[in-house]
Simulated scan of single mutants.
Amino acid sequence: MKLFTIGFTKTSAESFFTRLSRARVKKLVDVRLNNVSQLAGFAKRDDLRYFASSIGGIGYEHMSELAPTQDILDQYKKDKGPWATYAEKFLDLMARRKIENIDRSRLDGSCLLCSEDKPHHCHRRLVVEYLKEKWGDVEIEHL
């Protein structure tokens, strides 16, 4: 199984969709809690669904069960909490949600999308690493 991750900030739509197409991503899985903000530019939910399909023949699905809660997100972003605390709380949330029970076919060949330009301090990385630990046979590529 192969999972990709990508962020949309600090990139152009051209670069974003080119990376998805070159990687032969089958589906873009939106793991953001809030995906309709005007600040998202080309990556607002409905626009993203349209562009992914029209430009790359790529499917789209919003999976809020792979997003942090508003409380966890606010403590990290608004209150400027430490990354380690955010990661610990989100890992605990994924375990309580038992995300490893998601039908694997929904994710195979998919690319998890969040806003952060790099995966280092982004929950999409935590999601794919958690699933790799639980499922074992997961190859991860950050686009």
Rank of each mutant, 00 (worst) to 15 (best):
E65P: 00
N101V: 08
L39K: 12
L48H: 04
R124M: 03
S115P: 02
E129N: 12
M94L: 15
S15L: 11
L20P: 00
R124K: 01
G57F: 13
R24N: 15
S105V: 07
T9K: 09
A67C: 01
L143R: 13
K44P: 00
K44W: 01
A23L: 12
Q38Y: 03
F4M: 14
T85S: 07
V128C: 08
V31M: 06
R104A: 06
A13K: 12
V36D: 03
T85E: 14
K98I: 09
S21I: 11
H62Q: 02
Y76F: 15
E116W: 01
H123R: 09
G57K: 10
Y50V: 11
L66V: 02
V29I: 15
F51N: 01
D137L: 00
L91P: 01
L131P: 11
N101H: 11
L91Q: 10
S21P: 02
L91G: 07
A84Q: 13
A87L: 06
F8C: 14
D92W: 04
A84E: 15
L66P: 03
I58A: 08
E141A: 12
L112K: 04
K80P: 07
H120W: 11
P119N: 05
H62C: 03
D47Q: 11
I99A: 06
F8A: 10
E100Y: 14
G59H: 08
S105F: 02
V31Y: 03
L73P: 00
K89H: 06
I6K: 04
I6L: 10
H123M: 05
Y76K: 12
Y50W: 09
G109S: 08
D108M: 05
K27F: 00
Y130P: 15
E88A: 14
C111T: 09
R125L: 15
L143F: 12
G41Y: 06
G81E: 09
I102A: 06
W135P: 02
S115T: 08
S53C: 01
F51Q: 07
S37F: 00
R19Y: 00
Y50E: 07
K27H: 01
W135I: 06
Y130Q: 13
D30P: 09
I58Q: 06
K134T: 10
S64W: 00
L3T: 15
H62M: 03
K98F: 05
K10E: 12
E129W: 11
A84T: 13
Y50M: 12
D74C: 03
V128F: 08
M94I: 12
G57D: 13
A13Q: 10
S105L: 05
G7A: 07
L66M: 13
W83G: 08
A43T: 10
S54W: 04
E141P: 00
L113N: 08
R97D: 11
P82E: 15
K89C: 08
H123V: 07
D79P: 02
L113T: 07
R104D: 01
F90G: 04
D74K: 10
K44T: 08
D47I: 10
Y76C: 11
F51I: 01
A40G: 09
R32D: 00
P82C: 10
R32H: 00
L33A: 07
A13S: 14
I140R: 11
H123E: 03
D117A: 12
T9F: 02
